[in-house]
């Protein structure tokens, strides 16, 4: 009898999971999010790297920054930095070459799961130390195994803290072997 109860409950869970899986295809809309991270510290007057990690919802993929075909829309980050904080090169990770059920012979270069974009930022030497906020957007175009969604712009916002450079270490004056003679 206990066996029957266990089987019944097992069937119940399996059924619920199966129906949930069927649900998910038609209605789910893909989402990409910027994962929270500790405030990056940037040294005034120097080139610093800021890491932004994004997460693509499971079951979806987005084109990498270097998609494998001309017509595909690349993932791109655009930033509007605060005055006196200069944005340099934005480095995107290489995508993963994957083939999908809709075209098993072709490979698309995509991001799925988490990916990290590296942004070079140089606060001018004259900028005041303190917290600053960057605004921008990540443009991406997502697909799942059977359909593609129109390109979207994810609003991106993150804070940085500009700090003064460490004062240079004072060198000890050279000691003369004859000092004190």
């Amino acid at each position: 009898m206990v066996k029957r109860v266990v089987i019944s409950l097992g069937l119940l869970v399996a059924l619920a999971l199966e129906l949930r899986a069927q649900e998910s295809f038609a209605k789910k809309s893909p989402s990409v999010t910027l994962l929270p991270a500790p405030t990056a510290q940037l040294t005034r007057g120097k080139v610093n790297n800021v890491q932004l990690t994004f997460s693509v919802e499971p079951g979806f993929h987005i084109n990498s920054n270097q998609p494998s075909a001309e017509y595909l829309i690349p993932t791109t980050l655009k930033l509007d930095p605060p005055t006196d904080l200069m944005v340099g090169k934005i480095t995107y990770p290489p995508g993963e070459d994957r083939s999908f059920a809709f075209s098993p012979t072709d490979k698309l270069n995509v991001y799925s799961g988490r990916f990290t974009v590296l942004v070079r930022v140089r606060p001018l030497a004259s900028v005041l130390a303190g917290e600053y906020e960057f605004h921008g957007s990540l443009r991406y175009q997502a697909c799942d195994n059977a359909a593609c969604f129109p390109p979207k712009n994810l609003a991106v916002r993150f804070a940085v803290k500009v700090v003064k450079p460490r004062p240079p270490r004072k060198k000890n004056p050279a000691q003369s072997p004859h000092a004190g003679n």
Partner: peptide, 10 residues
């Protein structure tokens, strides 16, 4: 369809 849609191309 759209040019950016690989399944559409299939």
């Amino acid at each position: 369809w759209a040019t950016w849609c690989p399944p559409c191309k299939i």
